[in-house]
Computed example of a mutant assay.
Amino acid sequence: MKADIKDTTHAVEAAAVMRLLEGRPRLLALGEPTHGEDALLDLRNELFRQLVEQQGYRTVAIESDCLMGLVVDDYVTSGTGTLDEAMERGFSHGWGASAANRELVRWMRAYNDGRTASERLRFAGFDGPLEITHAASPRRALTALHGFLSAHVDADLLPCTADTLDRLLGADDRWTDSAAMMDPARSVGQSAEAGRLRLLADDLVALLEAGAPHLTTTASRDDWDRACLYGRTAIGLLRYHYWMADASPARMTRLIGLRDQMMAHNLLAVAERSPALIHAHNGHLQRDKSTTRMGGTLLEWWGAGALVSARLGEEYAFVATAVGTIRHQGVDTPPRDTVEGILYALPQDRCVVDAPRLATALDGTRPAPRVSPWFGYAPLDPAHLASGDGIVFLKDVPQS
């Protein structure tokens, strides 16, 4: 059996990843089992550079705020602003402070220098404007969409004025109140104003879609794409705020699922533009149902990867990242009967694994699930082994 398992592993390089796939998928997703470890992000950068240079991928999309990501895209495509500004204003979740993320953005800008528009790399955040503690105000998305339409369609067709939007939105801190995440009564998402904004957002997006034959010829492709992004984000945020105000037992399942729906819609839009490399947590990108425990309750939902895979089929590929140890977080040598333990026993410090072949090599024996002593790390679920396209395994994660 050991020889068979060894036969499922390869060197960590783009060519090995591509050999796991039938062809070049439109979206190639690389997951990670934990956030904030630069060793994993350095590995991502290495693979993504090779996949750009060897396979022609032209967009890099990561689990970060889709609107903030526009700042990074402007910097890498045209040099707008500075690298420091892109890192400070272009990432959510505090990830602009990561040295590995900074290196990714620096490399993308250097790659684009002197290249034609069609050859340049693009950057995208594909998460909603959401943090663990709160959701953003829909102001930016709604007003930007209204501004685009005001510049391109007859004013009589607009469902409201900019002043009406401003009045209904009110102060942004009403929307971003962190107490609303745990107390539905603090949310404004089901107020009369929010209800009116949901209807107006729907009308604005309908107007955008109805005018597509005209708008896609009179506006630049980038302006059109951004208007569509503003529309998706406005509707997604208003829907998210609505369910933040819900007090039913399904509230958190709804919110987690809505976040991944926003991610999926953004990924499908990215796929329409160019072949893209995706990076996020394994739980968002896997094809199987995602699960987490919150306050002792098990939550289940379909993640972005499952939703996109249902739409794109073989044009979506998912490679998980797995690790052996994260000792500085208390994650020590994995038990030998887990997936991570089996891979940890191999001589390589890192490898690309053919996940379906590994499942076959185990001769029908399902490894035991690994239990993490640290909430920030999610081991591979052995039940999902055969449904992924591959695994990138890193034996030991050093402290960043």
Rank of each mutant, 00 (worst) to 15 (best):
T8C: 09
H10P: 02
A11G: 15
A11T: 14
V12N: 05
E13M: 01
A15G: 11
L21R: 00
L27R: 04
L28I: 04
E32P: 03
L43Q: 06
N45G: 12
R49Y: 10
G56N: 10
Y57Q: 03
L67G: 04
V72M: 05
D73Q: 06
D74T: 05
Y75L: 10
Y75C: 04
V76L: 03
S78H: 15
S78F: 15
S78A: 13
T80P: 06
M87E: 03
R89Y: 13
S92Y: 03
H93N: 11
A97R: 08
R102S: 12
E103Q: 15
Y111N: 08
Y111R: 09
N112I: 03
G114F: 08
R122L: 06
F123M: 03
G125I: 00
I132C: 12
H134M: 14
H134R: 14
A135G: 10
A136W: 00
L145D: 02
L145M: 07
L145G: 04
H146L: 09
L149K: 01
L149T: 00
S150V: 14
H152S: 13
H152P: 06
D156Q: 12
D156K: 07
D156A: 14
P159I: 02
C160S: 14
T161G: 15
A162L: 15
R167S: 13
L168Q: 09
D172M: 13
D172G: 12
D172H: 07
D183S: 15
A185D: 14
S191V: 06
S191I: 09
E193Y: 07
L197R: 02
L200Q: 01
L204G: 01
V205S: 11
L207C: 09
L207E: 10
E209G: 14
H214Q: 15
A219F: 07
S220T: 15
S220Q: 09
D222H: 15
D222P: 10
D225Q: 11
A227K: 02
I235H: 10
L237S: 05
M244W: 05
I256A: 06
R259A: 05
N282Q: 11
R287M: 07
D288A: 12
K289G: 09
T291K: 15
L299E: 02
W301R: 02
A304V: 08
A304M: 11
A306G: 05
V308M: 05
S309R: 03
S309D: 14
G313K: 12
Y316S: 02
F318H: 00
T321S: 00
A322N: 01
A322L: 07
V323I: 14
T325D: 04
I326E: 00
I326H: 00
H328T: 13
Q329G: 08
D332S: 12
D337Y: 09
V339E: 03
I342R: 02
L343G: 00
P347Q: 14
P347S: 11
D349K: 10
D349E: 14
D349P: 09
A355T: 04
L358H: 05
T360M: 15
A361N: 02
D363C: 10
G364F: 08
G364H: 08
V371A: 14
S372Q: 06
F375I: 11
P379Y: 04
L380C: 08
P382W: 01
A383P: 06
L385R: 01
L385H: 04
I391L: 07
F393V: 02
D396K: 14
P398A: 06
Q399A: 12
